[in-house]
Design a protein around this nucleic acid. Structure first.
Lengths: 387, 387
DNA sequence: ATAACTATCGGAAACGTTTCCGAAAACGAA
DNA sequence: TTCGTTTTCGGAAACGTTTCCGATAGTTAT
């Protein structure tokens, strides 16, 4: 028979139901309800990371004293501090950043949303981001959208839940509405866009010379004597595709070359589409004498296919592409490209975001353009080959 | 004149020093000390992420009620739950994972330490890791050691401070002592090694067939008629280099080919060393007729250099390498390789780690070997070219 | 009417860390 | 000795969330 938790007597106890799998009792004398608590299971000493409380116990001081010692406070005796630091090192104390960040209201973590880490451009950007972040004492949390708007939205939500101090975003191909970003911007979260930016949001941006780079590549093809230049573009909604396409159109216009719609092929950058475009263009009565792809991987795919068809590059058809990689230099013929300097893009983006985080109240969003470089290689050198 | 905080009188007040930039006062009547607190600065309503407390205030319920509603508790009325969920969505409530993880004692985050994200092998591994982790509800935090033992140690410490639930580690080239990992293992942190593992630690491991892959590549070269096969190895301390070198040695032995020390070149995988090795080998009285590199990037570098020297591959010298990439297939001559399937390595490693995290008390470390694939390409096909 | 049960809400305390404050001892000046 | 200062420690409360418990109203069975 169970005794009352208040008076200790058993004669006035009646049952009062089962709640949460446990018998509840009522003492009529005291007007008190209570549960029958099972015997305390042996709380085995569980392995865990050392806490400030563990260090404090070893030394017989308060946790606040340990904290002061480890954090350059003036209100700690130097001998006490040295002793605390000694024990903390002995016990391999590592601050719990969860607790620390919860208290401080900042995590020193920046979230990065990119389409695909396996793409050399984005791997390069991430490397640049990590370099700058690391030097500024920030961690980096990377998410991949895999070109899906929905995944991108989930990524943003997960990073917000992790309470990142700021976001670096390069949008997925699919993303054409931006509520998920707008909402966080409104809440005051620092956000910097890079590469695939969004013109309707007042964020800082790091972009490349999409227009000028494109213009320069097409101009170079024109100066090589090309007159029927086909362009393999991306989705019509994708801002960088629009800009690069405009550079193409502008170069044609400058040199008085008429624009032919059948030479403009819109795609989702897929391999099969590279082949489709080639098939289409080579079925025309007048074939193109040059191809410009706005994403270099498609140019690689086309080089492989043209070589398979024994079509001579650049004699029969020249190639030029936006973006660079070691492969572009080593494939034969080597590919004429516009190098975007992804590592530098990453560095700039991280640098601007950190400035935004630190000077949150005064930061004014701006756009930083990273100047790329036209690299002429074998794939477009028609005149040289004419010798 | 300031009044006593206790009795409200001013006549018994004396000064009692300056502490923390503020005047302290003493009331002789009450025997009470206090500071002069400056007027409360206007606490402007600061923008922040919505908390459970915000939702609770809107509805006039307790925070614990909101928590119960959002977490499938049985002790919440369905109407109350629906109302709370409605308001939470309206206010875009996102759980604060810092607080949640602090309470639950787990972060659902796994830490990954790799040498370099820009290396396609590791980018592929990371992609595989992220796939499995994401499906299991885990986040991934990636750190790069940049082949430095010290940076690797700092990475581990940072991840521990972030209270990751487990670690996936591929060691840097420099790392030859493992105290930093042993310490965390002793604290019960789940750890899985992949690729560059450590044999002295009782962790689960995901490895490739270093020996067998190497053996197969060298055997293939021998069957192509090569008899003076040079090997471009890594640092002597690096375990994967040792294993791949052993595969080389074993294949030579199987076919009764004597081992010549000048054909074994140890390096740190640097580009300049690729050139150094070629210079050395071509200065020998008897030049090698094949080269096996244990890291494919060096083979690429050598192909470029040999072509520059107008040395015919594979007629004069064949090449084969450990590791694969698109570039290996597209360079000319295309490179014979052992493909390690990095994405699969990443998937397996993440899968094992998550199992370790979930079944922490019963998990037994084991080693999983990922079977790779020998891919014969142009760089080693001597017999075919003899026609 | 009494006993026993169920449903569901609010409050308290925990997680680890930080920072503010008072307490109290020590010191220096008048 | 009194007044005024400095040093430095411990305690309390905050950060956001979760989970345990009791409180209390309602329901059912005897």
């Amino acid at each position: 028979m169970i005794a009352c938790v208040k008076c200790g007597k058993v004669e006035n106890i009646i049952r009062s139901g089962f709640v949460r799998g446990k018998q509840r009792l009522f003492c009529k004398a005291c007007d008190v309800y209570f549960s029958v608590t099972p015997p305390n299971p042996s709380t085995s000493k569980k392995q865990h990371q050392t806490t400030i409380i563990d260090v404090a116990k070893v030394l017989g001081v308060a946790p606040s004293t340990v904290s002061r010692a480890l954090n350059n406070s003036a209100e700690i005796n130097e001998n006490t501090r040295a002793e605390i630091i000694r024990v903390a090192n002995e016990l391999d104390y590592r601050p719990n950043l969860l607790a620390q960040s919860l208290h401080r209201g900042e995590t020193h973590t920046i979230g990065v949303v990119i389409p695909d880490i396996q793409r050399p451009f984005f791997a390069g950007v991430v490397a640049g981001i990590q370099k700058v972040a690391s030097e500024a004492g920030y961690r980096v949390m990377i998410c991949q959208s895999n070109e899906s708007h929905n995944t991108e939205t989930l990524n943003v939500q997960a990073l917000v839940a992790s309470r990142v101090d700021g976001l670096l975003i390069s949008h997925s191909q699919e993303t054409n509405t931006f509520e998920h970003v707008k909402l966080q911007l409104k809440k005051g979260l620092p956000i910097v866009h890079f590469d695939r930016v969004c013109d309707e949001l007042d964020t800082a941006k790091v972009i490349q010379e999409d227009f000028a780079g494109s213009f320069g590549l097409v101009e170079h093809l024109i100066l090589q004597g090309c007159r029927k230049i086909a362009v393999f573009a991306g989705p019509e909604d994708l801002l960088i595709s629009q800009k690069r396409l405009n550079g193409y159109l502008s170069a044609l216009k400058k040199y008085g070359i008429s624009i032919e719609n059948e030479l403009i092929f819109h795609s989702n950058f897929k391999h099969e589409e590279s082949i489709d475009a080639l098939n289409y263009w080579f079925s025309l009565r007048e074939k193109p004498d040059a191809i410009f792809t706005i994403h270099y991987a498609n140019a690689i795919e086309m080089i492989v296919e043209l070589k398979r068809r024994a079509i001579k590059i650049p004699d029969e058809i020249a190639l030029a592409a936006f973006g660079d990689d070691l492969l572009a230099a080593l494939i034969e013929p080597s590919l004429t490209v516009y190098n975007q300097f992804p590592y530098l893009v990453g560095q700039e983006a991280a640098s601007i975001l950190i400035e935004n985080i630190i000077n949150k109240d005064t930061f004014q969003p701006f756009t930083k353009t990273i100047k790329g470089e036209l690299i002429v290689r074998q794939s477009s050198l028609k005149n040289l080959n004419a010798n």
